[in-house]
Amino acid sequence: MPAGKKQGRPRTWTRRQLIDGIRWRTRAGAPWRDVPERYGPWDRIYDLLRRWQRDGTWKLILEQL
């Protein structure tokens, strides 16, 4: 198998789109279900936010900034 190719189903939504959805929701203060579809499904956006909160990714990002 060529190096750099990941197995499995390709992502439908890019991580950038999901992060932009988190940013939109934070700025707007709207409910999760009101996040525009262009950012991806609201439950995927919320899941990314919570996973990164639990594993400390957001804290690491803020420390690096």
Rank of each mutant, 00 (worst) to 15 (best):
R27Y: 06
E37A: 15
R16Y: 01
Y39D: 09
W52M: 01
R50K: 12
I22H: 08
G4N: 12
D55Y: 11
P41Q: 04
R54E: 09
W13F: 13
R25Y: 04
G56V: 00
W58P: 01
W52T: 03
R54M: 04
R27W: 07
L18D: 01
W42K: 05
M1T: 07
I61Y: 03
I61F: 04
R33V: 07
R38L: 12
D43M: 12
R50S: 06
R25Q: 13
P31V: 13
W42M: 05
R27V: 14
P41H: 11
Q64K: 14
D34E: 11
G21W: 05
G40Q: 03
A28W: 06
G21D: 05
A28H: 12
I61M: 10
G40R: 04
E63G: 04
G8W: 10
D34V: 05
R50N: 03
M1N: 15
G40D: 00
R23H: 10
R9Y: 06
P36Q: 03
R23Q: 12
L49I: 02
K59I: 01
P10C: 05
L18V: 10
R51K: 13
R11L: 12
R27F: 13
G40M: 00
P10I: 03
Y39T: 11
L62G: 02
P36K: 00
R33M: 10
W52D: 01
A3C: 11
A30F: 08
Y46D: 09
Y46P: 00
A28R: 13
R9K: 12
K5A: 12
G40V: 06
G4V: 01
R11N: 15
T26S: 10
G29A: 14
R9A: 15
P31F: 02
I61P: 00
T14W: 03
W58R: 05
P10L: 09
W32C: 00
R51Y: 07
W24R: 04
E63S: 06
E63I: 09
I22K: 01
Q17K: 14
W42T: 02
P41M: 05
D20W: 07
W24H: 07
R54C: 10
D20Y: 05
I22P: 00
I61T: 06
L49H: 08
K5W: 13
D43P: 04
I45H: 01
G29Q: 09
G21M: 06
V35D: 01
R44C: 05
G4W: 11
P2E: 11
I19G: 02
K6N: 13
G40T: 00
I22C: 03
W13A: 06
R50T: 09
W52A: 02
R15E: 15
G40I: 01
G40S: 08
V35R: 01
T26C: 12
Q17G: 13
L62D: 14
W24L: 07
R9T: 05
I61Q: 08
Y46L: 13
T57S: 15
G29Y: 03
M1Q: 14
R16I: 15
R16P: 00
E37G: 10
V35E: 05
R11H: 15
E37I: 09
Y46M: 02
T12L: 09
Q53W: 02
I45P: 00
D55R: 15
E63T: 08
R38M: 14
E63H: 11
